[in-house]
């Protein structure tokens, strides 16, 4: 009998070289903030979760902690432990920290919207935080830096024109599991990295319960979808067909969230259709 080497369908690795990744993203931040947009100052909405913590670490390394302003924006139902976790990041990095509660602003509007369900309330909170971040940036001659990761962008698990609005985002092409890897490598406090991810818009909310799938599985499926594999080929790599379907449905149902508003084209000079200039021109 001759030895047989059996080759099965393989799955592309999502492993990252953390040192290489950190260096690349820090160079991006320096070029994009300092050289092109002319400010080293970054404003980050620090939630206590791993995404914004990672962005704070990258900004502090790239721009210096003295140029990083972390804004905590709790609503009255926000988990107190989120505030504590955000403070751990502020203390570890020596960045500026400020707490600006959004309860008055949110409740002021919601008094006129008594029928708002939890989803609408969550969107109002997210958009209020966006408003605060931009104003706090204007106050400091800074730029808001985004904290949305590739997984939530692909699943549409964010509030449109809220979490996705900052003009610079260093982690938007990293899957959630890659965010965890890089955060651990950079020394983000374990209380932040190891807790279940949560949008913290409702009590006891977790991302994975909301989504109906773990991030580890979602990332594997998303990566294969992006590489062009069909559902059958993805299932052949060990994923449950129902989970493949769930992920694909979320991606296909949210393409609009990854674009600017749809504008009726009526001329031969329509912006971004005929009139084409890169963002950095």
């Amino acid at each position: 009998m001759l030895p047989v080497v059996e080759v099965r369908p393989t799955e592309p690795s999502l492993q990252i070289d953390s040192a290489l990744t950190a260096g690349w993203l820090e160079a991006f931040l320096r070029d994009e903030m300092q050289e092109r947009r002319g400010t080293p100052r970054a404003v980050i909405g620090l939630s206590g979760g791993v995404d914004s913590a990672l962005v704070a670490y990258l900004c502090a390394r790239a721009l210096g902690p003295e140029n990083v302003y972390a804004i905590r924006m709790p609503y009255r139902t926000s988990s107190p432990s989120s505030l504590d976790d955000a403070q751990r990041v502020i203390d570890a990095l020596g960045i500026h920290g400020e707490t600006i509660p959004i309860s008055d602003a949110v409740d002021g509007y919601l008094a006129h919207a008594p029928d708002a369900d939890p989803r609408r309330k969550g969107n109002v909170m997210a958009r209020t935080r966006m408003l605060v971040l931009f104003d706090q940036s204007a106050r400091r001659g800074a730029l808001p830096v985004g904290t949305g990761n590739k997984t939530e962008r692909l699943l549409g698990y964010f509030t449109w024109h809220a979490d996705d609005t900052p003009p610079v985002n260093p982690i938007g092409d990293l899957f959630k599991t890659q965010v965890w890897d890089l955060a651990r490598w950079l020394g983000v406090p374990h209380e932040v990295v190891d807790k279940p991810p949560s949008a913290d818009l409702e009590a006891n909310q977790t991302d994975e319960a909301d989504l109906g799938i773990t991030y580890a599985k979602a990332d594997g499926i998303l990566n294969l979808i992006l590489l062009g594999y069909n559902d059958h080929a993805i299932a052949a790599r060990g994923y449950a067909p129902a989970e493949v379907k769930l992920v694909r449905r979320r991606v296909d149902g949210t393409h609009w969230k990854r674009h600017l508003p749809t504008t009726a084209l009526v001329s031969g000079t329509a912006i971004n259709e005929f009139y084409l200039r890169p963002v950095d021109f």
């Binding site: 690795s13 999502l14 492993q15 990252i16 070289d17 040192a19 290489l20 990744t21 690349w24």
Partner: peptide
């Protein structure tokens, strides 16, 4: 444009 971060210290 550099891409691919899984490499061993190199894009």
């Amino acid at each position: 444009p550099g891409r691919g971060l899984s490499g061993n210290g190199e894009l």
